[in-house]
Write a protein that binds this DNA or RNA. Sequence first.
DNA 1: TATTTAGAATAATGTACATTATTCAAAAAA
DNA 2: TTTTTTGAATAATGTACATTATTCTAAATA
Lengths: 171, 171
Amino acid sequence: MGRGGIRRGAGRPKGQGKYNEPTKPIRIPESMISDVMKYLSIKGYKLPLYASTVQAGFPSPADDYIEQQLDLNQHLIKHPTATFFVRAAGNSMVGAGIHSGDILIVDRSLNPKSGKIVIAAIDGQLTVKRLSKTSKGLYLKAENDQYQAIKINDASDVVIWGVVTSVIHKV
Amino acid sequence: MGRGGIRRGAGRPKGQGKYNEPTKPIRIPESMISDVMKYLSIKGYKLPLYASTVQAGFPSPADDYIEQQLDLNQHLIKHPTATFFVRAAGNSMVGAGIHSGDILIVDRSLNPKSGKIVIAAIDGQLTVKRLSKTSKGLYLKAENDQYQAIKINDASDVVIWGVVTSVIHKV
DNA sequence: TATTTAGAATAATGTACATTATTCAAAAAA
DNA sequence: TTTTTTGAATAATGTACATTATTCTAAATA
């Protein structure tokens, strides 16, 4: 028979689920379900960034010295729809830390101001150069003495594709 | 009255939805709903990677010259749970393309073999050096003549934190 | 005949609900 | 009294279903 009566405080406690917080069902295209699951499982690729002055206990980096949690995509790509990557070739920009084979992150929505490193198409060939505005005009300069600066004028077949924001170098 | 009868072929056509493919409701923790939505809206941060030899029509990069679609996180981080970032300080590794202020991607799950660039804690201070095994023993070498190699032995207070896989350099 | 209209058909979408999991405590049993 | 049992309470979770959107065509109309 009944063992009834109120059970104040009973019930499954909050925050016991997979994510320790309430969830909502969101429709996900089938082809991306596994990607989204992965994304969720590692909390959106947010990984710890340590300052180089860490003096933590070993062997595991201690949480106390985490500078911030970083998601590479969010950190490096401010305008996803206007951003693309280019693989660098040649050594004309080693002075700017750009080596052959590096992946350059290029933002088309940024204004190509003087001093910025840009991706330019010169006669249909992609190159990475530093934009330089002087009293003599607008130039594309290599960061390497062996290369000559290229003057930009109305006659020249030069199109700026975008501004380089970061360089990814595999070691 | 009835205008009945079968309507073969009637109905909303497939692939008319937001994603042009079938969807399934997946539960998402509330704090990540906006992140996931963003992730979906740009198809998982997969952006085009162009080869440097592109000779496309202007001013927009043509799809024909896309080398591949790249997601930085997936491309650079193979072991999310074992990976962290460290901000580099000092110029001891400029020869390897590592400059002060760069963000290093470090994988703790990789074996620190000779020749690899590693993050090591020496007397509690983090440094980035190249691991070098010679007949004389194991060394941590800077890629810069002004720094001296550090010999690793049982007595030395050196712990390898992980192997550097990539360098991110802001320009 | 040509045009319009009112369902019929079917995909997309968000959410209510049934189910499952978990914890609590009153009542029963020891 | 102490221990065990059993239903109450409530969160987590996946999915069925009601709703909405869209297109098609037979019948009605001009």
